[in-house]
Design a protein around this nucleic acid. Sequence first.
DNA 1: TTCACATATGCAACTATTTGCATATAAGAG
DNA 2: CTCTTATATGCAAATAGTTGCATATGTGAA
Lengths: 180, 180
Amino acid sequence: MSLKHAILTLLETEEGSGYDLLKRFKARLGFFWNASHQQIYSQLKTMHQDGLIDCTLEKQQGKPDRKVYHMTQTGHDTLVEWLENPVKVDKINDALLVKLYAGHLIDKDKLRQELNEHTAIHQRMLETFLNLEQEYLNLPAHEKKPFELPYLTLRRGILGEKAWLAWAEEVAQYLENSIH
Amino acid sequence: MSLKHAILTLLETEEGSGYDLLKRFKARLGFFWNASHQQIYSQLKTMHQDGLIDCTLEKQQGKPDRKVYHMTQTGHDTLVEWLENPVKVDKINDALLVKLYAGHLIDKDKLRQELNEHTAIHQRMLETFLNLEQEYLNLPAHEKKPFELPYLTLRRGILGEKAWLAWAEEVAQYLENSIH
DNA sequence: TTCACATATGCAACTATTTGCATATAAGAG
DNA sequence: CTCTTATATGCAAATAGTTGCATATGTGAA
């Protein structure tokens, strides 16, 4: 499991509550790791029980209390051990491709419409990534250092989305020609 | 769930045993949907119970008996209904990227080595896809028709792998420069 | 004043996937 | 003669992820 390790990675740099981690997930790991709030909260609970992280309660006025989690030595060791052992190649399970494969069973218009909707989403993601890239590229050289590795993960997002969109263009072309 | 629908897609064209479907998965849907034999067998059992498929027993000499599954009307209807309703955009959970994000915590050599191993796997996949593409492209025009949609799914594999490898090249460059 | 959104947490039930085990035969390689 | 690969099926336990529900407050918009 890697949700655990993703959380440890985030806590390694900075402590935080479940809610913090949820937001950090979306902002930093969101384009290559997805987790819902339920998953994060329950994972934090287990990790706390297992001694990978500990927890202090912060009272707040106006807002609910925050449980702030931080790394323990065990947590750090667990993370390092995971980092040093190989991980599997990412597994793809893409329902849209199953659909396309079976596309002879549906109306081409419906297929085209769904492809357009997915394309719009991917375009929006690409834009977000390109904006983040600009932010990074505009940093003065010495401020870039700590973000070099995160930037490389962002590049994965950019190249991945561009490839997706190029593919969608091919499919759109095909669907266009096949009606006339 | 889409494993169900992927199986229905395969059975729509041709009946088959769990073992057949396993092989067809690898050959046809393997680059965008992955399923283990345990998953397929247990899924078939559930689908049979739910009346989406039915089953006849084929005795064989020398080899174990085969349970041959085929589509029912309910199964067909279920597939068509799924096809006509939108699916979600594919969710990515890529452990290698988590690792890269936390790469400051590990030895660059180890990181480079793991990247190389993943690169080798992706290169092999790309080669496989390109070979399949050649097979398709060498078909006479009239035999291409039934494979047009599967070919588009193959293109996704090709473009996706090429993008992965281009990205890996960027990462390799970075890791190369950061030691010297 | 109501509605949506952000803050902040979590349980319970279900669905999906992985990992390890289990069985049995045949064919071919070393 | 043993080892690997292919054929053919499956159970059980654990882990991972989704969906629906639940609670409580503050802020800003319509």
